[in-house]
Amino acid sequence: MNAMLRLREVCLARGPRQVLAGVSFDVGRGELVALMGPSGAGKTTVLRVIAGLEIFQSGTVHLEELALNGGGCHPPATLHSLRGKVGMVFQFHHLFEHLPVIKNVWLAPVHARRIPLREAERQARDLLAALGVEHRATALPRELSGGEAERVAIARALAVDPPLLLLDEPTASLDSARRTELRDLLRGLTREGRTLLVATHDEEFARSCATRVLRVKEGLVLEEC
């Protein structure tokens, strides 16, 4: 397998509590991998480690040619390169509460990627249209339904075009019809060549859309099926 992402023996403790106790797994380019497990098993922490949001005690994370090492703060240059490669959709979305939907989407392209405003705004509209939430472009995040917020969060993450997209419990606020729509959407993203790692405890959703399922339990990736 052409591994895009490789975790080796990643250990992370918070005080006396060992959250990750030597996590190792690979994700191939273009895969849609589901990370399953009960609440508190460490799924979210795995995603946060990959996104560079957590410092871990030991082990390594390789993302293409980039390496994050355990044992200390990540160098700013490494984090800077990482930001171009990983996008993340948080469980509670964390949309910028003070900005309308469209600005949530074009903020990073304009300020972090230096894309001209007009161009960034057009791309943002296209993304919102592709995700079926174009009509909410001027709404504020607090005015969105759970499903709309999920789609806007995906649009915001995709706007900076990351090859790896991490999603944390994307089905948490969706009914079954929306869940099916989301499954089709994620499949479409993999067809475009994007790699997806989805943390979920929704067994049915995982089985129906993932190319592979990893199971997290007590801080370890226990089985692979």
Binding site: G52, L53, F92, A108
Partner: peptide, 13 residues
């Protein structure tokens, strides 16, 4: 909220 800051950081700001 810290989530707002993390969302900004992860987008490359």
């Amino acid at each position: 909220p810290a989530g707002q800051l993390e969302a900004g950081r992860i987008l490359g700001l």
